[in-house]
């Protein structure tokens, strides 16, 4: 039954992927730009939803891995002339390795302490990059060669987002989901049943970090220039988190809904630059207050059957 649902998800994802893959041939440049942004944010949001919505690790460390991916990608491109697929694979590995390196420390922390620990990690990495001249210091690094054209970058972002969505589908639709939810609900009780909570959390953390690092790499190549304040900026963390909360935390479709909403809202409000942020804040407050399960939660109440991954 569960596998049946998984194959359904796979089908939809494959269909969407094929459809979107050919978007550059009929969509406008603007639509492509927006889609690129959606794919990057979707990857971040899916990863954050896996960590927080499913495993229960409230992370404020998204920026650490975006920055890591950016710097690793530039190192590979500038020093070795690596092609993008290679860059993505290495960045994913780097993200997973960093996650594995810091997890012995971070996983000792529970609840709000884990959260501030991840926040401190991002701040620490940013400060280190600013001060270490090896990595360009505060001036950052420029890509030596021109980045590939938008259509090609779009395909990279789309592929990363597909990998992220596939991974989340597997986490949500297979027996893995039972284990993940057990760890989130009651770590001790799960351990008493033979689940190794540390490994489960580490696997989720490494997976999310690998995905985020890949998104960071694509975004950095798109920019052509990186420096610590932008690459390790808190804004990445806040974006991922607010998109998932707006979309509906813990819901399978929450990240997608949140990303679409926030990106569209940003575009619509961009013509009022002075008030843009304040209006976003007001909308955020109203949504949190009156749509507790986010956009998806709101819609789900209208349907009887729900596609809920798990309750928050």
């Amino acid at each position: 039954m569960r596998l049946h649902r998984l194959s359904g998800d796979m089908g939809i994802l494959a269909g969407a992927f094929v459809l979107l893959w050919f978007a550059p041939s009929f969509a406008s440049d603007y639509a492509l730009q927006i889609s690129f942004r959606v794919m990057i944010y979707l990857t971040l949001a899916e990863s954050w939803n896996l960590l927080t919505g499913s495993v229960g690790l409230v992370s404020l460390g998204t920026a650490s891995f975006v920055g890591l991916g950016s710097y690793v990608a530039f190192g590979l491109a500038n020093h070795f002339g690596a092609p993008i697929p290679v860059i993505l694979v290495v960045c994913a590995l780097a993200g997973a390795v960093l996650a594995a390196l810091v997890s012995p420390a971070l996983f000792r922390l529970r609840g709000v302490y884990f959260t501030v620990g991840t926040l401190a990690l991002a701040a620490l990495l940013q400060l280190l990059m600013v001060n270490l001249p090896t990595f360009g210091g505060a001036s950052g690094i420029f890509l030596k060669h021109d980045p590939p054209p938008l259509a090609s970058l779009y395909h990279d972002a789309l592929s990363v987002a597909l990998v992220a969505s596939l991974a989340m589908a597997i986490c949500a639709r297979t027996r893995i989901s039972v284990i993940i939810r057990a760890v989130r609900d009651d770590e001790d009780a799960a351990a008493q049943m033979g689940v190794r909570p540390y490994r489960v959390k580490l696997a989720a953390f490494a997976l999310a970090s690998a995905l985020i690092a890949m998104a960071g790499a694509v975004q950095a190549i798109n920019l052509g220039a990186i420096e610590p304040y932008g690459a390790f900026g808190l804004q990445w963390t806040i974006d991922a988190l607010s998109m998932v909360i707006i979309g509906g935390i813990g819901w399978r479709l929450g990240p997608l809904a949140g990303v679409l909403f926030v990106v569209m809202l940003g575009e619509m409000l961009a013509n009022y630059p002075e008030a843009h942020i304040a209006i976003t804040g007001v909308i955020l407050i109203v949504l949190i207050r009156f749509a507790p399960g986010g956009i998806v939660g709101m819609f789900a109440r209208l349907f009887t059957r729900s596609t809920r991954l798990s309750s928050p």
Partner: peptide, 24 residues
């Protein structure tokens, strides 16, 4: 072991509670 005060995974069904042990 069992807990004195039961600690089932509240949002999972009874069957899923057992799956946790089986699949782990």
């Amino acid at each position: 072991r069992t807990y004195q005060i039961p600690r089932p995974f509240l949002d999972m069904t009874v069957a899923e509670n057992l799956e946790v042990a089986q699949y782990s």
